[in-house]
Every structure is written in C-alpha cells, then in structure tokens.
Amino acid sequence: MKDDRDDHDPIDDILREIERVMNEMMGDDVHIDRGGATGFGSDLHLDVYEEDGEVRIVADLPGVEKDAIDLKCDGKVLTVSAASDRRDYEERVRLPTRVDEHSAAATYNNGVLEVTFDRADDSADIDL
C-alpha cells in the first residue's frame, strides 16, 4: 500500500507560500508556474526604464505573432498577455510611477515588445 506522503512534494509547499506572500504584497493574483500546462509568466523577460518624463517597458516574446499580443494599462499597472504555439504569457507589471495610459505607444519587432508611456502629471490644476 502506498503512503500518501510519498506523493507530497515539499517544493510545492514552498512555492505556494511564496505565491501567498507575493499576493499579499502586490495585491494582485500572482501565479507561479509549477511546471503545469499553462506556462503563464514562466519565461517572460521584461525590463522597465524611467527616463526623460516617460516610462519604457521592453519585453522578450520569442515566437509570438504580433496579433497574439494584448496590452492593457490602468495608469499604474501594465498587463501583457501573449500566446504562441508553445507557450502563453501573462504578466502584470507595476509601473514605477503613474503614467498617462492614453499616451501609450507600442512596437513589436523580432520578438521584442517595446511600450512607452508619458508620465502622468503629479497634480492637476483646479480652476475656481
């Protein structure tokens, strides 16, 4: 008779705890790929740069067709969703500063996605 404890992988416990702590810190649903079928976020290399009044995000999406990329931004978080024949990507990036999501410009060339945003004004003028 097989003991149920033989099937228990302690690494899964560690990854679940890391996922729980990240969700508490980020306030988002963070998913850690444990080698399952989804592959979400497992290999997405992404860099964020803040320079000269703009925020620039560069992501490597090898093997993804341009039409399979979906970008959403609420001014604070950029969500990158993409799919290829072999893998799906889903990444939420908390931006270093608030951006004007309506200023977004994106390019995709040779598997490299680049998205730029203007920084949002720190305050708004109120007319009386």
Score class of each variant (00 low, 15 high):
8 H>V: 15
95 L>P: 02
19 E>C: 03
72 K>Y: 04
36 G>S: 09
19 E>K: 12
67 D>Y: 04
113 L>S: 09
75 G>M: 02
103 S>C: 01
70 D>S: 05
63 G>V: 01
75 G>C: 02
3 D>T: 10
18 I>S: 09
121 D>P: 15
47 D>T: 14
36 G>K: 05
104 A>K: 13
125 D>E: 11
29 D>R: 13
81 S>M: 14
44 L>A: 09
52 D>F: 07
97 T>S: 11
93 V>I: 09
106 A>H: 10
107 T>G: 15
16 R>M: 05
101 E>V: 06
114 E>W: 08
78 L>T: 01
111 G>W: 04
11 I>V: 15
113 L>G: 06
73 C>Q: 07
100 D>G: 05
100 D>F: 02
2 K>I: 11
63 G>L: 01
123 S>R: 13
1 M>N: 08
3 D>C: 08
101 E>W: 12
112 V>I: 14
44 L>G: 00
20 R>I: 02
103 S>K: 00
86 R>H: 12
104 A>D: 02
12 D>N: 11
113 L>I: 06
67 D>H: 09
120 A>D: 13
49 Y>P: 02
128 L>H: 06
6 D>K: 15
108 Y>L: 07
18 I>T: 13
56 R>A: 01
122 D>L: 03
87 R>A: 11
35 G>Q: 04
59 A>S: 13
110 N>P: 12
42 S>T: 08
100 D>E: 11
